[in-house]
């Protein structure tokens, strides 16, 4: 089967999967206590008739299957609904926040992948205390939750040393133009990106090390050395290439880890992204926003897995 038809088939499979995810999310949130109306009214002693009228206006008095049907109908026409809490369409809200999240997760992913692969290769190649240090550090890092690490980083570098800002993605007065603005942006990015990258980095370093140790013992590596290939070439041409499919699989299949971590990190660092929006929408019982973000996260995981499988096939032609 060609790569193209494989990709198309996988995309078709993703449609029922995402539909199931949408239905499940909808039912879960419907089963949770509270609704947007109670959140909108808050502690104000509104008369019961007024509350009932609002529920009727928003269609919240309808039975669950009817509401679900309407939700899916809107989804089919790519309508994500209206955010009661923010008083604007969910799509507008999400679009405004997407950039910040992509910047944060993209940076964390790049840092985790590059450093993780480098550390893993180094540990496998050098062995001894370097290997033990990398493995210990990776286990420790993986065991550390993002929100806790984030707060430690804020305590150390923002409050203690005062080197870096702790909240937001840019100065409140607005970012400077040009190069200065870019550097300023990096200063804001550094702490949240580190907090988000660390667990992922640990995971990538461990799998890279494990695969590299295996490949270094392979017969074809001995054959490459027998042809006079240097250790650097062996590492780049054989070890990295043969470790890549496993490493990419781990990166791709754990994309959910990055997205879940992003919600926590954004909350701790006041980063104006989708994760922070999800946190706020849960607090505000903002169901449409919640549903939209959960669906986006599911779709991202599905796409990440698909990309992983396609890349895997490109790297290893034996995968039929």
């Amino acid at each position: 089967m060609s790569l193209l038809s494989y990709t198309l088939r996988r995309l078709l499979h993703a449609i029922p999967l995402l539909l199931a995810v949408a239905v499940l999310n909808f039912c879960l949130i419907a089963a949770a206590p509270g609704d947007p109306v109670t959140a909108l009214i808050g502690d104000f002693p509104a008369p019961a008739e007024y509350v009932a009228k609002m529920r009727q206006d928003y269609g919240l008095d309808q039975p669950l299957p009817v509401r679900l049907g309407r939700y899916l109908q809107h989804l089919a026409s790519l309508d994500l609904g209206y955010s009661f809490a923010n008083r604007m369409p969910v799509s507008t809200l999400v679009a405004a926040r997407l950039g910040a999240t992509l910047k944060l997760t993209g940076t964390a992913l790049a840092v985790a992948a590059v450093l993780g692969v480098a550390l893993g290769l180094l540990a496998a190649r050098l062995g001894g205390w370097v290997d033990r240090l990398v493995r210990f550090g990776a286990t420790l890092s993986y065991a550390m939750p993002e929100f806790w690490l984030g707060q430690l980083l804020i305590l150390a570098f923002a409050i203690g040393l005062g080197w870096l800002p702790s909240q937001g993605a840019a100065p409140l007065r607005g970012a400077a133009a040009g190069w200065a603005g870019f550097v300023e942006g990096l200063r804001y990015l550094l702490l949240p990106a580190s907090a988000l990258a660390l667990r992922y980095l640990a995971l990538i370093a461990r799998i890279t090390r494990a695969r590299a140790v295996e490949v270094l013992r392979a017969d074809y590596v001995l054959a490459a050395r027998a042809r006079g290939a240097s250790e650097t070439r062996v590492l780049l041409d054989h070890v990295l290439r043969n470790a890549a499919p496993s490493v990419i699989t781990v990166i791709g299949y754990n994309a959910g880890l990055l997205l879940a971590g992003s919600a926590l990190t954004e909350t701790v660092f006041g980063w104006p992204g989708i994760g922070r929006l999800l946190f706020d929408s849960i607090a505000a019982r903002d169901t449409p926003t919640m549903l939209a973000i959960l669906l986006m996260v599911s779709a991202s995981v599905v796409i990440a897995n698909l990309l992983t499988d396609v890349l895997h096939r490109l790297l290893d032609r034996r995968v039929a």
Binding site: D219, Y220, R225, R227, A229, R241, D316
Partner: peptide, 24 residues
């Protein structure tokens, strides 16, 4: 020694399937 391997001494091994890198 590395510079002599492959240039002045060649080596062929037992099982050709495991001595070729599957991805190259």
């Amino acid at each position: 020694r590395r510079r002599l391997r492959g240039r002045r001494i060649g080596m062929v091994f037992q099982d050709p399937s495991s001595f070729l890198d599957p991805l190259l």
